[in-house]
């Protein structure tokens, strides 16, 4: 039994980020049709960054990203590439406690 989903945005609101405007550190160069395997990213990303667009493409909104690497690893395991880099120095998640 799983409880109703909590709003991850409310959790992310506590965190400190310095967003590198206009320079996302994760991108998809070829539009990725969200296969069932990639669709799991919508659920398992701990920051809820991923969504599937009406046209079936995978889309990421990275402002809350933890730079954890889960999406890159899961995509790679099913033979798909997400262009994944760390943000430029000083940008991205900045943990107060960690």
């Amino acid at each position: 039994m799983m409880i109703n989903s909590v709003k991850v945005e409310e959790k992310l609101f506590q965190n400190r980020y310095v967003v590198d405007e206009g320079r996302p550190h994760i991108s998809i160069s070829e539009p990725l049709k969200a296969s069932p395997a990639l669709r799991t990213l919508v659920d398992i990303c701990p920051a809820g960054c991923w969504s599937v667009q009406p046209d079936g493409q995978l889309s990421g909104t990275l402002d809350g990203c933890f730079e954890c690497g889960t999406c890159r690893i899961v995509a790679k395991a099913v033979g798909q590439e997400i262009q994944w880099a760390y943000p430029r120095g000083g940008y991205g998640i900045l943990y107060k406690f960690g």
Binding site: I3, S5, V6, V8, K11, D43, I44, G48, I73, A77
Partner: peptide, 21 residues
């Protein structure tokens, strides 16, 4: 494990919430 999260499509924050409750 990431493989288990992927297979079960579990939301990590839901799992944490359930643990806390």
């Amino acid at each position: 494990l990431v493989s288990d999260f992927a297979a079960s499509k579990t939301r990590p924050y839901d799992l944490l919430e359930r643990f806390k409750q």
